[in-house]
Design a protein around this nucleic acid. Structure first.
Length: 426
DNA sequence: TCTGGGGTCCTAGGACCC
DNA sequence: TCTGGGGTCCTAGGACCC
C-alpha cells in the first residue's frame, strides 16, 4: 500500500507588494499597495496597508486621499517583474520536493509524501532559503489534502501557528475545534454565494460542512462541493497535477485608459490584442480554429447608452499566424462596431485551441506557403525577443495609442529589461 | 473623471441521431 | 406519420480560483 499523501502549499505573502519591496527595502515595515491594470483598484496589500483598513478590490479613486494622508506607497502592477520573480521562487521550491505543481503566480503545491524529515522544520528551512535567495517571504501549510493544506497555510499566515510561517495540520490536537472557528468562505473553493446558500440550509462553519452528507451536497451544489467535504474529512480527492495542462482558451483583453468612440482607436487596440494572442499561441505551441472579437461600453456608465457585441470568425485551418489573426479581428470589429458609443473595453478570445503539431492541413493548402509563414513568425518572435518587445509591429497597431492603460505608478522592470536595472548610489 | 485580467470546471438544455 | 428512449455533441451561463 502506498503511504497516505501529504501535501504542502507554499504561498508568497502579499506577493506583488513583496516584489516591489525587494527593490525598495526602505518600504519594509511601511504600507504598500499594488493596483490593477489601469490603476483601477487595489489587488495587493502589505500587512501594514491591511492594518490601515485598505480593502482588497477597493477602487483607487476612493482611497487616493487616504493613501496620501497615511503615506501609503502605491504601485501600478508590473507583471514583467512579478512573473520573473515568481519563476525564481518556483524554481527554488521545486528543488525541495520530488514533485510540485505551480498553482498560480504566487502559490505552489509540493508533494511531501513519504519524506523522512520533520516536515515543520523542513518547511521552515524552505522559507528561509526562499527569503534569502529572492527576498520574498512565504508561508507553508501542510496536510493530508490540498483543501486542508490551503487552510493550514491561511492559519499560519494569520499568525495562528506556533511555528511562525509554517503549520502542519497533523500537529493540531483538536482539528474539529479549529474547523468550528473557520468561516465557510475562508475555505478554498467556497465564495460568498455558496456561503450564503449553505447558511440557508443550516451550515454555518467548516466543521458543520465537514460533518454533512457529501451525497446530499452533491445534489444541491454539484461535484465540486462534494470534493470539498471529502477533503475536509481528510480524504484526498484533488490530486497534484505536475504537468501544466495545455490551455483550452486564450483571452487577451483590456479596459482602455480613456473611453474611445473612434473606429481607428478600437482598430489599433484590437490589432494589438490579436498580435498578443498570436504570440501566446506560438509560445505554447498552439493554433486556433476560431477567433472571437468583442467590444463593450462601461457597465458603470449608466448615464450613457450601453452597447456590447462580439463577432466570431472561423479559419480554414488552425493558425497562429499574426497576420491572419489581425485580419480576422479587424473583419469582426467592422461587423460589430457602432458609431455613437463610448467604448470602455475590447478583447480577443481564442476559444478552440489545437496543438500546433497535430493541426490538420486542409486539402487545398500548399505546404510551402505554410512553411514560409511559420518561418516568418519565428523570425518575428526572435527579433522581438532579442531587441525588446514590440520592436517589430504591424502598422495598424501603432496608428493609435489612445487605448493604452494608465500606469501612473509603475516601477522599473528591474529583472527583465537591461535598460531598467536597479542602480545603487553609494 | 476614476471600478482588473485571465483562466477553469460543471451543469442544464437544445439539437440531432439511431 | 407517430411514439419513445437513449446517447452524443455543443453552447451558454453560473460558479469558482488567483
Amino acid at each position: 500500500m502506498s503511504p497516505a499523501p501529504i501535501f504542502a502549499i507554499a504561498d508568497c505573502n502579499n506577493f506583488y507588494a513583496s516584489c516591489e519591496r525587494v527593490f525598495q527595502p526602505k518600504l519594509n515595515g511601511k504600507p504598500v499597495v499594488v493596483l490593477s491594470n489601469n490603476d483601477g483598484c487595489v489587488i495587493a496589500r502589505s500587512n501594514e496597508a491591511k492594518a490601515l483598513g485598505i480593502k482588497m478590490g477597493a477602487p483607487y479613486f476612493k482611497i487616493e486621499q487616504y493613501a496620501k494622508q497615511e503615506g501609503i506607497a502605491v504601485f501600478s502592477s508590473n507583471y514583467a517583474l512579478y512573473g520573473d520573480m515568481s519563476q525564481r521562487v518556483m524554481q527554488i521550491l521545486a528543488s525541495f520536493a520530488p514533485r510540485s505543481e505551480v498553482y498560480s503566480i504566487d502559490e505552489c503545491f509540493l508533494d511531501f509524501t513519504g519524506l523522512p524529515q520533520n516536515l515543520t522544520e523542513y518547511s521552515l528551512e524552505v522559507c528561509t532559503v526562499v527569503k534569502q535567495w529572492t527576498g520574498i517571504p512565504i508561508s507553508i501549510g501542510i496536510a493530508p489534502t490540498k483543501t486542508l493544506a490551503k487552510l493550514a497555510n491561511r492559519l499560519a499566515k494569520n499568525g495562528h501557528s506556533h511555528m511562525g510561517p509554517v503549520l502542519d495540520w497533523r500537529t493540531i490536537a483538536d482539528t474539529d475545534a479549529v474547523l468550528k472557528t473557520i468561516a465557510l468562505d475562508d475555505l478554498w473553493g467556497i465564495s460568498r454565494r455558496w456561503k450564503d446558500k449553505l447558511n440557508q440550509i443550516g451550515i454555518h462553519h467548516a466543521l458543520a460542512l465537514k460533518q454533512s452528507d457529501p451525497k446530499y451536497l452533491r445534489q444541491h451544489f454539484g461535484v465540486v462541493m462534494e470534493r470539498i467535504v471529502t477533503e475536509l474529512k481528510g480524504i484526498s480527492c484533488i490530486a497534484l497535477e505536475e504537468m501544466p495542462t495545455p490551455k483550452k482558451q486564450i483571452l487577451t483583453s483590456r479596459s482602455f485608459g480613456e473611453r474611445l468612440s473612434d473606429y481607428d482607436d478600437l482598430r489599433a487596440a484590437v490589432t494589438h490584442f490579436a498580435t498578443r494572442s498570436a504570440e501566446k499561441c506560438r509560445q505554447q505551441q498552439l493554433t486556433t480554429q476560431v477567433l472571437s472579437v468583442f467590444i463593450h461600453t462601461s457597465p458603470f456608465d449608466t448615464a450613457n447608452p450601453q452597447y456590447a457585441n462580439s463577432a466570431t470568425i472561423e479559419f480554414d485551418r488552425p493558425t497562429s499566424n499574426t497576420s491572419q489573426l489581425i485580419a480576422a479581428a479587424q473583419q469582426g470589429l467592422k461587423r460589430i462596431f457602432r458609431r455613437g458609443f463610448s467604448y470602455q473595453r475590447a478583447g480577443i478570445l481564442l476559444p478552440d485551441l489545437w496543438s500546433a503539431n497535430v493541426a490538420q492541413i486542409s486539402l487545398f493548402d500548399s505546404g510551402e506557403s505554410n512553411l514560409r509563414s511559420d518561418q516568418l513568425m519565428t523570425a518575428l518572435d526572435d527579433i522581438n525577443r532579442k531587441h525588446g518587445k514590440r520592436s517589430i509591429r504591424y502598422a495598424s497597431e501603432i496608428l493609435s495609442k489612445r487605448w493604452q492603460m494608465r500606469q501612473q505608478f509603475k516601477s522599473p522592470s528591474y529583472t527583465t529589461n537591461i535598460k531598467e536595472l536597479l542602480t545603487i548610489q553609494i
